[in-house]
Computed example of a mutant assay.
Amino acid sequence: MEEMTVTAKIQISVNADSKVFLDEIMSVYSDACNYVSDYVFRTHDLKQFSLNKALYSTLREMFGLKSQMAQSVFKTVIARYKTILENQKEWIQPSFKKPQYDLVWNRDYSLTQNCFSVNTLNGRVKLPYFAEGMAKYFDHDIYKFGTAKLVNKHGKYFLHIPVTYDVEESNVSDICNVVGIDRGINFVVATYDSKHKSGFVSGKAIKQKRAHYSKLRKELQMCQTPSSRRRLKAIGQRENRWMQDVNHQVSKALVESNPKHTLFVLEDLSGVRNATERVRTKDRYVSVSWSFYDLEQKLIYKAKQNQSTVIKVDPRYTSQCCPVCGHIEKANRDKKLHLFTCKNCGYKSNDDRIGAMNLYRMGINYLEDSQVPDTVTTE
C-alpha cells in the first residue's frame, strides 16, 4: 500500500458575528507568525522546543493565543523556513501578509457532514459549509484529516484540509496498457497507446490566451503606477489559476480514458528552463513558462489514485527516431511543418505523434527489462 494526500477545499458560510471572530483570530495568528519569524531570522533557531521556551509566554500574553494556537504558530513558521532553506539554500525571512489560521484536527477544528467547528479567541464557533464532494471523506477508517488552513479570499472563507489515505501500489506485472505522452506547445499532449490509437489535445487556444496575457502584462509594466502593479499581480494569479485548471482537466481526461494499471510514459523535461539559449528570444516566454511540470505532477497523483504508474524517460531522439525502422536523423523532423519524414524508409506522420510513439516503445521496453530505458532504442 502507498499513502496519498489530497487537499479538500470547502467554502465556509459565515454570518456577521462569526465573520468578526474569524477575522480576529486570522489577523492575530498572522501577526504572531511574523513575530516568531523575526525571532527565527535573528537566531536561526528552528527547534520547536527552544522556541517554545523563549516565546510561548509572549504569544499567550501579547497576542492572547491559547496554548494549542501558540504551538501551531511555531509549526507554521518552522515549516515555512524549512521550505525556503530547501528551495533557496539561504536564510530569507518569510512575511505572513495574508490573514491565515492553521488548525489541528480534533483540537482547533472538527468537521461533520454539515458543521464546521473552529476554536477562536472567543471560544468555539460552529458554522455550516458547502459540503459538495466531501461526503466520501467522512469514512475515517479510510480517510484521515490533517492540519487544515483557514484562509480569506476576496471576502470568502475557505478551509483547505489535507486528506490522507492508502492506495494499492501498481506492480509491473499488473500493467495492462501503455500510453506514451508527448508534451508540447502546438499540442498540449499527443498520445499513443497499446491499442495503437493516437490522441491530441490542441494547444492553440492556450497559446492565444497566454499571448493575450503577455501583451497585457507588457502594457501594464510600461505604466509603472501603483494601480498597474496591483493589476499585474492580479493578472498573474488569474493566469496561473486558469493554467492549473487546464492541466487538471487534461490530466483527469488522460487517467479516466485509460484503464487501471496503465503505464504512462513522459519525457523528463526537468532541464527545459535551461534550454533558453537554443530558443529564439521572442519565443522564450512561451517555451520556458509553459507549465509542463504542473501537468506532470497532476498526472502522477491522479494516476496513483487509479492504481496506475508514471515513469519519466530520457527525451533524446524521441522526435528524430523513426518508430518503424529505427533510423535516427535530425533531418527526419521538420519543426516548421510539424512533420516527420524518415530519410531511410519514408514513413511520415505528425512530429508530436512520433514522439508519443517512441515514448510508448520505451514503455514497452521498460516492462520487458524492468528498468527505465536510457534512451530510445533503434530496435
Rank of each mutant, 00 (worst) to 15 (best):
G64V: 07
A131E: 01
E24P: 00
L22D: 14
A190H: 07
A190G: 04
G155R: 13
V255C: 14
K47C: 11
S289H: 05
N15P: 04
V167M: 10
Y39M: 09
N122R: 05
N247D: 13
K215V: 00
E256C: 08
N358L: 02
Q371G: 01
V255G: 15
S57R: 09
R231P: 00
K207W: 05
S18R: 03
I181G: 01
T341A: 06
K53E: 11
D31P: 01
H44A: 03
Y109E: 10
T58P: 05
D38Y: 12
S202M: 11
M357I: 02
V167L: 07
K204W: 07
K298Y: 12
L339Q: 00
N350L: 03
N247S: 08
K156T: 11
N274M: 06
F74G: 00
A16T: 12
D268T: 03
S194N: 04
Q297Y: 07
A135W: 12
S13A: 15
T43W: 08
D245S: 12
E256Y: 11
D141M: 11
Q93P: 03
I185R: 01
V265N: 06
T262Y: 09
S37E: 14
D193T: 01
R353A: 11
T7A: 06
Y143L: 11
F130T: 06
V125P: 03
V125A: 07
V118M: 13
V36C: 07
K304G: 15
Q208R: 14
N186E: 04
E169Y: 04
N52Q: 15
K260F: 04
A205I: 09
F200S: 00
Q93G: 13
D141W: 01
M357G: 12
I185Y: 00
E368D: 11
D193H: 08
E90T: 05
N171R: 15
N240H: 05
T76K: 15
A253F: 08
P315F: 01
V265I: 05
L121Q: 10
L55A: 02
